[in-house]
Design a protein around this nucleic acid. Structure first.
Lengths: 189, 189
DNA sequence: GTCTATAAATAGATAGAC
DNA sequence: GTCTATCTATTTATAGAC
């Protein structure tokens, strides 16, 4: 019994890992259950033993993707907003070169089309992101602005067909975030 | 002959108007050609006399949606970044109460999944937006940051399931844009 | 140019064997 | 729990009548 439970959990985690990667990079509609299951080395029929619907998988995959994406960020840049922005607003992140990209940016305009479960998971993930930003700046308002500059900047940079323009946009966002960080803040009490 | 040309152009404009509205609010994948044609009071079969593919329609619809969305903005707030931000980052804009919402925010993470024609149109539309912002601030960098705060802020606000949180985010972005405007800028030469 | 009808492909979800 | 097979619905795109 314990073996079976473990086996089932392992299968579910394989599905979730595949889904987190595929959905983050290509969005909800472009990815089919079949693609997710093939990447997880399973078949379509096994899917509904683990998830109630494609939308259910999407919600859980976004949550996992968020956790995976932040797993490295705090480690690499625990106290410094500049490092955070450099990591987040990098061309590598934009160009799909991170194993787990940030779903907040990659899926931002996809979420409004989804059901409440998905919106709730996305909102919770954003709150964690903003808490992270809050610890690196001096006010909640500045944390919100930094989050929008990072998430919005990365999302916009991915939509452009002009690399120079896209790079310029990332640089401007980095500068904006830096001007909101603790070190640059003249209001330190 | 002239009559037919006019008639054809009118049909195309009706299709484009329907597509601009439907695509902007629901994205590329959630809208079918059939839905667009029904809204335009035509049938599916007539579609391919006007557009080569659904993707072709999408590109032209984004262009039209951008033009329509900006048609009012400069009129309402010709010289003032604060008015621009108040208009753009309003709850009405977020909640689909504008007849023509801004495709830059509503579709931002959808564009990366599309072909080059779509990306080019989106990029061109963003350039116009930034030129608008440039005329209301003191540097290109501030214009880029303002654009990201507005477009990214609106996009993010639409993804949340918590109205208070969403409103707070819009307010923070408005404050951020205001601090980048000409009036608040201490570097005026 | 617009219509009806249909081809051809894809995908979400389910049934039943093992 | 996972497999193969299939149902059902949807959608892009095309063919041909008017």
């Amino acid at each position: 019994m314990a073996w079976q439970e473990t086996h089932k959990e392992q299968s579910k985690q394989k599905i979730l890992k595949s889904a987190a990667m595929l959905f983050t990079h290509h969005g909800f509609e472009k990815i089919s259950i079949d693609q997710v299951m093939k990447k997880a080395e399973l078949t379509r029929g096994a899917f509904y033993s683990h998830f109630s619907s494609k939308s259910d998988l999407y919600a859980q995959a976004i949550s996992k993707a968020g956790i995976e994406a932040y797993k490295r960020k705090p480690v690499n840049c625990p106290q410094d907003m500049k490092d955070f922005a450099r990591y987040y607003l990098s061309t590598e992140h934009r160009d799909n070169n991170y194993q787990q990209a940030c779903p907040l940016a990659f899926l931002v305009s996809d979420i409004n089309q989804q059901d409440n479960q998905v919106k709730q998971v996305y909102t919770k993930t954003l709150k964690v992101f903003i808490e992270q930003a809050k610890s690196l700046t001096t006010s909640r308002e500045k944390a919100l602005q930094s989050a929008v500059l990072m998430i919005g900047g990365l999302a916009l940079s991915r939509a452009l067909d002009n690399k120079d323009f896209s790079n310029e946009l990332l640089a401007a966002c980095k500068a904006g975030v830096n001007s909101l960080s603790k070190e640059e803040d003249s209001d330190v009490s």
